[in-house]
């Protein structure tokens, strides 16, 4: 991919254009009122566009090339031979799981969409939901999902089984989780997989599926993103339940004193 500043800027502008047209149209023809602080808002939009452009160029320079090569090297037959396990065993790929886990965690911490949602959640919950702790929880969920996802590709077990089990867990958790965390938890699933995570994860999945004998990239290479949208829901619901337990516990302790 081209990493020239103007090329990436143009791509980002293309991404933003429909939104600007839509908001402009509604603002001018339907609302017929000017927005408060138009200059500040315009400045904000320019910040977002330039910020995303720099962000993408930076990732393209620093992470994507190495990420691709790493995914390839970690699953290459010569590297697997040194693992001490037979290449047919899923255990031989332990570095792949560790890599998937750590890269999932690291990229999610830097995910702009998640920063946006965590910021808003912190704001409207009056600080009750910590921005950092929400992001760490979600990142942990993505990390786990990628480790399990690579395990699935390596073992060749069917994707839908995992997804269905995940859904059942989410449904059960929904029954017990505090009401205020539910919508946020569901949203956390959707925001984890955008700018940063998708390219790395897609490269990892398709790379693994093409290296491991007997895997078909079309059938087995996909699905990592789906995992990465499911596990954070479970993680955030769990986080909500955990907070609830802590509150309950401290309350009970106070009663004792």
């Amino acid at each position: 991919m081209d990493t020239g500043f103007f090329y990436v800027l143009f791509q980002t502008l293309l991404d933003v254009a429909p939104v600007v047209i839509l908001f402009g149209f509604f603002q001018i023809f339907i609302i017929k009122k000017s927005i408060p602080n138009p200059k500040k808002v315009l400045l904000g939009i320019i910040f977002v566009i330039i910020g995303l452009t720099l962000f993408l160029i930076g990732l393209e320079m620093a992470l994507f090339p190495i990420g691709d090569i790493m995914a390839e090297q970690l699953s290459s037959p010569s590297f697997i031979k040194n693992s001490g396990f037979s290449p047919e065993s899923w255990k031989a790929y332990y570095w792949v799981y560790i890599f998937a886990f750590s890269i999932g965690f690291a990229t999610t911490i830097a995910e702009p969409s998640l920063i946006a949602v965590a910021f808003k959640a912190n704001q409207i919950s009056g600080g009750k939901i910590g921005e950092k702790s929400l992001r760490i929880t979600v990142a942990f969920g993505v990390a786990l999902s990628l480790a399990v996802g690579t395990f699935r590709i390596i073992t060749g077990t069917p994707l839908y089984m995992y997804i269905l089990v995940g859904y059942v867990i989410v449904i059960i958790q929904t029954i017990f989780a505090p009401k205020h965390i539910i919508a946020l938890a569901y949203d956390s699933g959707g925001v984890t997989t955008s700018t940063v995570t998708v390219p790395i994860v897609a490269a990892l999945g398709l790379g693994l599926a093409s290296v491991i004998p007997g895997r078909n990239p079309a059938l087995d290479g996909f699905g990592l993103i789906a995992f990465a949208s499911l596990f954070p829901i479970i993680a955030v619901l769990g986080y909500g339940q955990f907070l609830e337990i802590i509150i309950w516990f401290t309350k009970n302790k106070k009663h004792e004193v």
Partner: peptide, 21 residues
Amino acid sequence: IGGLLVIVGLMLFVEGLEIGL
């Protein structure tokens, strides 16, 4: 350099979120 661009980009993005989007 890439890491630095990512940091600056994220800072601008978050600022832009607050005052724009």
